[in-house]
């Protein structure tokens, strides 16, 4: 692979590097605080490799949650990955042997960076592959470093886990700016607050996500039947 493309991919991956090293280091430290070694952080980062859920998995593992709870949490929290893949079905398929790796390494961040690529054809494929490899490396390096630092550092940094919240807020703002339709965001927010009040902080994620998906699908259909005659008139 050409040096030029590697350089370009590296530059594109810089924002991912900053956030991944930071966030995965916090992850490594949190894992260590929960009683897991750096090798556990590496093991989970290699196999699962998904930001938000890995954090949740710490709580689930250390609170001895049932296997069904863990499976359901993985299913619900990572179902958004399905929608990311939808965008790249054709492009990844043309990448041959690298397709499986591309599928496995799709994250919120690589998705966003891939969307913004201006390259075409084989060059774009190489770029996407390199960005995926680099991002995965950043994540693993951070996770291991965090786990090791956590063992060395005498002081416990209260509140460092906030960087994941910050990343969520940034992704949320990016998504907010990408679209004019803010109904999904409000739906999610209101559903989450109501479910938090009703079900409590341990059990509210599942009903909140299910409720907002349901509401959004129903609302679409209602709006479609409502606007359908209007569109005919305009035509």
């Amino acid at each position: 692979m050409k040096k030029e493309i590697f350089k370009k991919a590296f530059v594109k991956s810089l924002p991912i590097m900053c956030s991944y090293l930071f966030v995965s280091m916090a992850y490594g430290i949190m894992m260590e605080e929960a009683g897991f070694g750096w090798y556990d952080s590496l093991f989970i980062s290699v196999t699962v490799y998904t930001g938000a859920f890995q954090f949740l998995l710490i709580t689930l593992l250390s609170s001895n949650a049932s296997m069904i709870t863990i499976a359901l949490a993985a299913l619900l929290m990572n179902s958004r990955q399905t929608f990311y893949s939808l965008t790249f079905v054709h492009e990844f398929r043309s990448m041959g042997k690298r397709m499986l790796y591309m599928i496995h390494t799709m994250t919120d961040e690589t998705y966003a960076v891939n969307l913004a690529l201006t390259e075409q054809g084989a060059q774009k494929e190489d770029m996407m592959f390199l960005i995926a490899v680099l991002s995965r490396c950043y994540w693993m390096i951070g996770a291991v470093a965090g786990g090791m630092l956590g063992q060395i550092l005498p002081v416990r940094f209260q509140g460092i886990d906030f960087c994941m919240t910050a990343l969520f807020i940034i992704i949320f703002i990016d998504q907010w700016e990408k679209t004019k339709d803010h109904v999904p965001a409000f739906t999610g927010f209101i559903a989450a607050v109501i479910c938090l009040l009703v079900f409590g902080e341990r059990n509210f994620m599942l009903p909140a996500l299910a409720a907002s998906s349901g509401i959004l699908v129903l609302k679409r259909e209602y709006r479609q039947t409502e606007t359908a005659p209007k569109e005919k008139q305009d035509g």
Binding site: T165, F172, W176, T179, A185, F189, L196, S212
Partner: peptide
Amino acid sequence: EKLKRLGGILPSAIMAVLIVYCLK
């Protein structure tokens, strides 16, 4: 089409839920 559209709008809702989770 329905799936494509839901794929487009669900991420915002999911992020909102995640933020509420973090700020609970």
